[in-house]
Design a binder for these strands. Structure first.
Lengths: 135, 135
DNA sequence: TGCATAACCTATTAATCCTATAGGTTAATA
DNA sequence: TATTAACCTATAGGATTAATAGGTTATGCA
């Protein structure tokens, strides 16, 4: 299951992506349009800025804006930043790999092989969608 | 991410699937072979019995055994019973649907459409794998 | 009949993670 | 100089997960 954080983050990015111009949009405006707690969204947007998706401007007329074009932002990278691993088990994660304690040999693990298939099919979908495809 | 419960449950089912005969296997034997806490596994196997995957026999020589043939057990149904929804958001779940509070219209929701794609690709993988495919 | 065995069941804990809020600081604008 | 809105840290409350404890019931066997 996607966390609320990820879901809200995607919605916020999509909201910014459909803006007619590149003017900064305030947290409160995104929050009210997408029915998100403004304070919670604040921390999410801050994350997205720190990870290079958003730029920001302080003070009156300030807000957040997309740094790259929507069609250049892959959903794989968005989800990895907001949610973490895309894989369903750490031992098949490409970006967040962790060995299983209970699993002596990954090659013979029944779960492992199945979860690689799931991971690859999910990566295929998310890697073929950008922010521009969400609207 | 898959819960430990689901992961252990799949491993246990796969362990039973590769037994040469249909004799009951004790919880403790599965637990030690798969490096799972015996007590924790106990509750998982109980779940799997109640949901119709396993039969059980009490007393000496007792244990758990598969009711159906491994090739008849779809991984979709296994995961739905152990983990719950396969979808990443409740609003695209086929078996555990729930409306989003923050989302006035699913058809125009940016997350919705993407998550339907992810769901379908995952269903495709899990629906084409049975317990027999795991070994 | 009675003992050993292993499933069955309920409750509870400890730990972790998620969601959200509070309250203040900094920088930009007018 | 006042207002605005991003920035930052801490924390609370809740939910969920992983695991343990401790007992009950049913079966097989001597």
């Amino acid at each position: 299951m996607l966390s609320k954080k990820t879901k809200y983050g995607i919605k916020a990015l999509a909201f910014l992506a459909k803006q007619p111009d590149k003017n900064p949009v305030q947290t409160s405006e995104i929050a009210s349009n997408e029915n998100i707690s403004s304070k919670f969204l604040e921390s999410i947007l801050l994350d997205l800025r720190k990870s290079g998706f958003l730029g920001s401007k302080k003070g009156k007329g300030g807000g957040y804006y997309l740094i790259k074009k929507p069609e250049e932002i892959l959903m794989t990278s968005v989800i990895r930043v907001l949610e973490g691993p895309i894989a369903m088990v750490p031992c098949v994660s490409l970006n967040y790999y962790e060995k299983c304690i209970d699993c002596p040999d990954e090659d013979t693990c029944s779960v492992h092989k199945l979860m690689i298939q799931v991971r690859d099919s999910t990566l295929n979908v998310l890697g073929n969608n950008t922010l521009a495809d969400l609207s």
